[in-house]
Structures are given as C-alpha cells and as structure tokens.
Deep mutational scan, measured.
Amino acid sequence: LQAFIKTLTGKTFTVEMEPSDTIENLKAKIQDKEGIPPDQQRLIFAGKQLEDGRTLSDYNIQKESTLHLVL
C-alpha cells in the first residue's frame, strides 16, 4: 500500500509498504528516502504516536492514509 508522510514544514512524500510492516520498518524507509535517522522520527496517525514494535494494521493504516512526521 502507498501512504503519505507529511512533515511539519508541509512537505509530503509517499512510501510503499505492507500492512504487516512494523513502524520500525516504516521509519527505515523514511530514512532511505529522506535521510532522517529513525531515532529522530515521531510518527503520528489519528492523533496517536506510533510505537516501533506495532504494525500498520495494528493502527488500521490503509492505503493513501496520511501520517504526520514530527522531528
């Protein structure tokens, strides 16, 4: 599935991932794409901060969901 990552500066980019991917995997993909170390990334979806060990499906993240990236 493709999801949108929106930063506080208003920049939006897309990442490809599977519902079974962990938040940790997602942070690694963001690092590959944007060069931001995972330990500096905080991802917010539906008002909740996402925990590394959980999966996208745990948070009911669907295709074309928008996640907010806070540094």
Rank of each mutant, 00 (worst) to 15 (best):
28 A>C: 07
15 V>S: 00
56 L>S: 02
40 Q>N: 09
59 Y>S: 03
17 M>I: 14
71 L>Y: 10
28 A>M: 13
53 G>D: 12
29 K>L: 09
51 E>F: 05
44 I>G: 02
63 K>G: 15
14 T>C: 07
63 K>H: 15
59 Y>C: 03
15 V>E: 01
19 P>D: 09
40 Q>C: 10
6 K>Q: 11
51 E>L: 09
66 T>G: 05
11 K>H: 14
67 L>Q: 02
28 A>F: 12
46 A>Q: 15
41 Q>C: 05
69 L>T: 00
57 S>F: 09
47 G>F: 04
18 E>P: 03
12 T>C: 10
2 Q>Y: 13
50 L>A: 03
40 Q>P: 01
71 L>H: 06
31 Q>T: 09
70 V>W: 10
12 T>R: 07
56 L>M: 08
15 V>R: 00
34 E>P: 00
40 Q>M: 11
37 P>D: 07
24 E>C: 07
22 T>Q: 03
4 F>Y: 12
32 D>I: 14
4 F>Q: 11
6 K>E: 09
46 A>T: 04
1 L>K: 06
53 G>S: 12
37 P>Y: 04
38 P>Q: 13
19 P>T: 08
51 E>S: 06
46 A>S: 08
37 P>S: 08
32 D>V: 13
71 L>I: 13
62 Q>K: 13
42 R>L: 14
66 T>Q: 07
17 M>Y: 15
68 H>K: 05
56 L>V: 13
32 D>N: 11
39 D>N: 12
54 R>D: 07
69 L>E: 01
28 A>S: 10
55 T>Y: 07
3 A>V: 15
35 G>S: 04
71 L>D: 07
42 R>S: 10
35 G>D: 04
14 T>Q: 09
66 T>W: 07
50 L>P: 02
60 N>P: 04
10 G>R: 03
41 Q>P: 01
63 K>W: 12
15 V>F: 08
62 Q>A: 12
48 K>H: 11
60 N>K: 08
26 L>M: 06
51 E>A: 07
46 A>W: 08
22 T>G: 03
14 T>M: 13
36 I>S: 04
60 N>L: 11
23 I>T: 04
60 N>T: 06
54 R>L: 12
67 L>R: 01
5 I>S: 01
51 E>H: 07
24 E>S: 13
3 A>K: 02
8 L>A: 14
20 S>P: 03
20 S>W: 14
9 T>K: 11
2 Q>G: 05
26 L>T: 01
70 V>N: 05
47 G>A: 03
49 Q>I: 15
40 Q>F: 09
45 F>G: 02
63 K>Y: 10
12 T>N: 06
31 Q>H: 14
5 I>Y: 01
7 T>H: 06
14 T>E: 06
59 Y>A: 03
67 L>I: 15
64 E>G: 15
11 K>C: 08
70 V>M: 12
53 G>C: 06
26 L>H: 01
16 E>A: 09
52 D>M: 05
52 D>P: 07
12 T>V: 13
17 M>T: 06
59 Y>K: 02
58 D>K: 02
19 P>V: 09
19 P>Q: 09
71 L>K: 05
53 G>N: 12
62 Q>T: 15
39 D>L: 09
52 D>W: 03
36 I>C: 04
43 L>W: 02
7 T>D: 07
32 D>M: 13
18 E>Y: 14
35 G>P: 02
38 P>Y: 12
34 E>N: 09
28 A>T: 09
1 L>A: 05
1 L>H: 05
39 D>W: 13
68 H>Q: 10
71 L>V: 13
66 T>F: 09
31 Q>K: 09
34 E>S: 15
2 Q>W: 09
59 Y>P: 02
10 G>P: 02
10 G>T: 02
40 Q>T: 08
49 Q>H: 12
16 E>G: 07
25 N>V: 13
53 G>Q: 10
42 R>Q: 11
60 N>Q: 08
2 Q>E: 07
47 G>N: 05
19 P>F: 12
6 K>D: 04
41 Q>I: 12
61 I>K: 04
71 L>S: 08
20 S>F: 11
25 N>T: 13
17 M>L: 14
53 G>F: 11
39 D>E: 14
66 T>M: 08
29 K>R: 11
50 L>G: 01
8 L>H: 14
39 D>Y: 12
4 F>A: 06
22 T>Y: 06
54 R>Y: 12
48 K>M: 13
65 S>Y: 08
